[in-house]
Design a protein around this nucleic acid. Structure first.
Length: 264
DNA sequence: TGTGATGTTGAATG
DNA sequence: GCATTCAACATCAC
């Protein structure tokens, strides 16, 4: 689930449930590997009595601002998810911890694969700098995008996946952008002309904005996108060719062998 | 039963 | 420093 549009939807849910409510306590379940720079117990201690006052999404990261000036950082990995519920028996199966509010409602953080990361940050800007996290893909200017591409020698897909270039693109949206622009995901950046580079930026933001507007609800993505055809035996919505599957930049990649040109 | 899955990181390699 | 590949993290679905 969690690329930029999916995380944006999680932010909406988080804001609706958690903002400006006193946190009675944090309930800890099995949290191995989840908390990165703090123990679960210390995290629970710090949360007690606090409130979230706002949140900020950058790429796939969600920074939740606390009333003491610090931030809780959520990264959802592959399977992280918020669930809000009122009754204990509604607790999701792989809940790692939950915020309990005074009226008894809970916001649980569920993560079967434990690939999520939670940080407690006293200085979120220092964290962003340290991680070299790029600008958010939805708002990065064309100029900054071109500047990031400048001098790179790898594949365009690898560029999209590296969060220090820009933040928020993941495997599925990267395939979608390449398909819509009509270039093979393994195309090498030096071989891309200026027009193609600008088109990549434009299509990327159009796709992400549409996905955000549709709340990352895949069933409502346009059928003329690659998205809902991106599977074994799927065919290209443009020309009906059977899609091919390969590994590019170490990740499963779908593309149309007929209408996506490999530039190298 | 084995394989791969929307992510990140670190190690090893070129 | 850059880019790539691999393994690890742990569980589920096909």
């Amino acid at each position: 689930m969690p690329e930029l549009p999916e995380v944006n939807t999680k932010k909406l849910n988080f804001d609706r449930v958690a903002l400006n409510r006193k946190i009675e306590k944090v309930e800890l379940r099995e949290t191995n590997h989840i908390f990165k720079n703090i123990s679960g117990e210390a995290f629970a201690q710090k949360m007690k009595g606090r409130q979230f006052t706002g949140s900020y999404r950058r790429g796939k990261y969600l920074f939740a601002h606390l009333d003491n000036g610090h931030d809780v950082l959520f990264h959802f990995g592959m399977t992280g998810e918020f669930y809000a519920y009122d009754e204990p028996e509604q607790r999701p199966r792989h809940e790692r911890f939950a915020f309990l509010f005074p009226d008894g409602e809970r916001l649980g953080f569920d993560c079967p694969r434990k690939l999520a990361h939670i940080y407690y940050l006293e200085d979120k800007d220092a964290f962003i700098k340290e991680k070299k996290l790029g600008e958010d893909a939805l708002v990065i200017s064309e100029e900054a995008f071109l500047e990031k591409l400048n001098g790179k020698t790898g594949t365009i897909k690898g560029f999209f996946l590296n969060q220090s270039n820009l933040a928020g693109m993941g495997n599925l949206y990267a395939d979608e952008v390449c398909w819509q622009v009509g270039i093979h995901p393994a195309s090498l950046i030096p071989a891309l002309d200026d027009k193609t580079r600008r088109l990549l930026h434009h299509r990327m933001q159009a796709i992400l904005q549409t996905a955000v507007n549709r709340r990352a609800d895949y069933a409502n993505y346009p059928d003329e996108w690659l998205w809902n055809h991106r599977e074994k035996g799927g065919t290209c919505p443009r020309d009906g060719q059977e899609l091919e599957k390969d590994k590019v930049a170490g990740r499963s990649t779908y593309y149309c062998p007929q209408c996506q040109e490999l530039k190298e």
